[in-house]
Design a protein around this nucleic acid. Structure first.
Length: 428
RNA sequence: GCCCUUGUAGUAUAGCCCGGUCUAGAAUUCGGCCCUGUCACGGCUGAGACGCGGGUUCAAAUCCCGCCGAGGGCGCCA
């Protein structure tokens, strides 16, 4: 079976009139009009109209929508509304037949519900709206890498199978590792900090796992996190890095992904920068003026963040959280040790990222572990690295899936994840 | 863990509140016939559905209960 093609569809154009071409793709639409027929064929680069006439009508035998075809034909001018040229077919080969009925309608005229689409996710990629989301996601990843590499960050890969779950916080998935108890990593936190010893500025983009039975549009059991850690940077420095990453993502996609925005039906708007910075203490005052009383040191619940989000509908940093709300590795402020050098990046009520300056002194770390009822001996593998010349460092982790929902203005992370994992969905 | 909503052809829906008019309607998809410029092609025609189990009733898609599935919210979330 010859599957070669001379052109991608986007490489075809009206100046090639009279030229013989071979291309391939899947049949989007098929319209028979007596002794002539039109079909539209799509590959990943675009869509093209194919015309079949007279004696050639037999070429259409056995042809149906969504089947993969190889078209041999000649470019000619077209009277079509949406195409300024078309291909007059001399041969149509069906390389793979699509069965009927298909579980969803990939043309997207009738939008299938999310459950059906996730159950048939591969086919959903023929829906141009869905495909555009993942083309954008690819662009976003490229943009983030570009921004970070320009700033001397080195991409790393830390283990996802880890041996210790003693860090507290979110529940972890446990698994059997040749007879030992192991866990799926919920964050690269400790490893990325260690890497600042020799690589100084590192980042990782990877899946992490949390065994929380959350049923919301913003939580998944498996999610993609963008993490950075940088030596000799304070928390405000890594906030600047984060801000430029976000702005670059919006700029790059807004300017270079016009077709995708059109398919999705959403115009990406570049946020103005610098992002507003609100301290935790200011946030309490703002909430107080809305008659929401919160004691210093209390965590902000979702409902509080929703109220704050109404006052700050776009991107803003929530900074200087109380130490007691932060994990053991967070560094306190010099002028007020009850406050931390920490921040969250919010988009309205939605938390996109959180980070801060880390402790780099091993003795301080040991003290903090004990204060938080954690056992320093179970962190010895980590703590020993702090005796080897650990530079002062800061970093953050950002939920990529959440950023994607903000970018395209939707409210469910399942739309931007190929095969989402939540407490009720393990397949496909 | 708690709460709310919801299951009708392949898809997406009307009907349900207020039981009978439902032999379950329209769209799209699919089959057949007609059609040489369609572009959501058109015309004629045909096929295809009430999640499962129980109950109430003369009568259940419609009301009640259980199960199963789905969607969403709260909480959880170094």
């Amino acid at each position: 079976m010859d599957i070669s093609r001379t052109h991608l569809i986007e490489e075809l154009n009206s100046s090639m009139e009279g030229k013989d071409v071979i291309f391939g793709g899947w049949v989007v639409d098929l319209r028979k009009l007596g002794k002539m027929a039109f079909l539209t064929v799509r590959d990943v680069t675009g869509m093209c109209q194919v015309i079949v006439k007279g004696d050639s009508m037999s070429l259409l035998e056995g042809l149906n929508r969504q089947s993969v075809v190889r078209i041999l034909g000649k470019i000619q001018s077209s009277k079509a509304k949406d195409f300024d040229f078309e291909v007059s077919a001399t041969e149509i080969q069906v390389l793979a037949k699509a069965e009927y009925p298909l579980p969803i309608d990939p043309i997207g005229r009738l939008e299938s519900d999310i459950d059906n689409r996730l159950n048939s996710r591969a086919l959903d990629m023929r829906n141009q709206k869905t495909a555009s989301i993942f083309k954008l996601r690819s662009k976003v990843l490229a943009s983030i890498r570009e921004t970070l590499i320009k700033r001397k960050f080195i991409e790393i890969n830390t283990p996802k199978i880890i041996g210790s779950a003693s860090e507290g916080g979110a529940d972890l998935f446990g698994l059997d590792y040749f007879g030992q108890k192991a866990y799926l990593a919920q964050s690269p936190q400790l490893y990325k900090e260690q890497m600042t010893i020799g690589l100084e500025r590192v980042f990782e983009i990877s899946s992490f796992y949390r065994a929380e039975k959350s049923h919301t549009g913003r939580h998944l059991s498996e999610f993609t996190s963008v993490d950075i850690e940088a030596a000799m940077m304070d928390y405000t420095d890594v906030m600047d890095v984060l801000e430029s990453i976000v702005v670059d993502v919006f700029k790059n996609t807004s300017e270079n992904c016009k077709i995708e925005q059109q398919e999705i039906g959403y115009e990406i708007k570049v946020p103005s920068s610098p992002f507003e910075r609100v301290t935790y203490t200011q946030a309490l005052e703002e909430l107080s003026s809305m008659d929401i009383k919160i004691e210093f040191g209390e965590d902000l619940q979702d409902s509080h963040l929703r109220s704050l989000g109404e006052k700050h509908p776009g991107f803003f940093f929530l900074t200087d959280w109380p130490m007691k709300l932060k994990p053991f590795y967070i560094h306190e402020k010099d002028d007020d040790p009850t406050l931390s050098r920490s921040f969250d990046l919010q988009y309205g009520y939605l938390e996109l990222s959180s980070g801060g300056r880390r402790l780099h002194d091993p003795e301080q770390l040991r003290t903090r572990l004990k204060e938080q009822d954690l056992d320093p001996t179970s962190f010895e593998e980590h703590l020993k690295t702090f005796g080897w010349g650990m530079p002062p460092h800061s970093g953050w982790g950002m939920g990529l899936d959440r950023l994607m929902t903000v970018l395209i203005g939707i409210d469910n992370v399942r739309e931007v994840v190929l095969y989402p994992r939540d407490p009720d969905r393990l397949k496909p």
